[in-house]
C-alpha cells in the first residue's frame, strides 16, 4: 500500500482484516470489561465515554448554548403552533436586562423568518 505523507512517498505492508480476529478481540474486551466491573465495581467503558463526552461537550459549547436557547424558547410555548417570534414577543419583558441573550433570541427569530420566506 502506498501513502503520500508530508510530501514523501511511504510504502506500507498490505493489512489483512480478519473477521474472526475482530470477533475474538471484541468478545475478549467485553469479557474483560464485565469481569473488571464485577470485581472492582468500576465501569471502564462508562468512565471512558464520560471523559470523551466532557471533552466533546467543551469543544461544542457555542452550539450547545444555542441549542439550550432553542430548548428554552420551545418550553416557553403555550400552544404547539406558536413560532419563535410569538414566543419572543411574550417573553420580551423577561429579557429586558439580558442584552446578549436578547440579541441572540432576536437573531434566532430573524433566521426563522428568513427561512420561512425562503
Amino acid at each position: 500500500m502506498i501513502y503520500l505523507f508530508n510530501g514523501r512517498t511511504t510504502i506500507m505492508a498490505k493489512t489483512d482484516i480478519s473477521m474472526r480476529g475482530a470477533l475474538a478481540g471484541g468478545l475478549t474486551g467485553l469479557a474483560a470489561d464485565l469481569a473488571f466491573a464485577e470485581l472492582t465495581g468500576h465501569h471502564i467503558t462508562t468512565g471512558l465515554l464520560e471523559l470523551i463526552g466532557v471533552g466533546v461537550g467543551m469543544f461544542r459549547l457555542d452550539r450547545r448554548i444555542f441549542e439550550a436557547i432553542q430548548d428554552t424558547l420551545t418550553r416557553a410555548k403555550i400552544r404547539d403552533d406558536e413560532d419563535y417570534r410569538q414566543v419572543a414577543e411574550r417573553i420580551d419583558e423577561m429579557t429586558m436586562d439580558l442584552p446578549e441573550l436578547r440579541e441572540t433570541i432576536l437573531n434566532l427569530v430573524e433566521a426563522g423568518m428568513s427561512a420561512q420566506k425562503a
Partner: peptide, 14 residues
C-alpha cells in the same frame, strides 16, 4: 458564561 447565566435567569423568570 454570561450567556449561560442569562439563560438561567430567563428560565427562572419563566
Amino acid at each position: 458564561a454570561r450567556m449561560v447565566a442569562q439563560l438561567l435567569i430567563l428560565r427562572c423568570r419563566m
